[in-house]
């Protein structure tokens, strides 16, 4: 099971804040996003950024059972 979290514009566009997803084997963050977002994915204007276990990662990086994966737009702090 992985925990999926979405933030800011990605959360609003996908209508998804937090969910869990059952992994049968490690898969890319992109594949997890596609699985949980379904058809809503096409509403995103650009590919999101991703963090795996709270570390900036890439969509092609693998997500494993027990991981937390987050999707969000480019950050704008400060």
């Amino acid at each position: 099971m992985v925990t999926v979290r979405c933030f800011a514009g990605v959360r609003e566009t996908l209508g998804l804040s937090t969910c869990t997803y059952a992994l049968e084997k490690p898969m890319s963050a992109q594949a997890v996003l596609t699985a949980v977002a379904g058809e809503r994915l096409s509403a995103l204007s650009a590919p999101p950024l991703v963090a795996i276990n709270m570390q900036h990662s890439r969509l092609e990086n693998l997500v494993c059972d027990g991981d937390e994966v987050a999707f969000f737009p480019p950050v704008s702090g400060g």
Binding site: G9, P74, S76
Partner: peptide
């Protein structure tokens, strides 16, 4: 500004807009 996961939404008289990030 490029790494810490914060996102700003500006609220103006014209509505609300997410600030472009880095």
């Amino acid at each position: 500004k490029t790494r810490a996961p914060f996102w700003k939404k500006e609220i103006t008289e014209d509505g609300a807009t997410w600030v472009s990030g880095e």
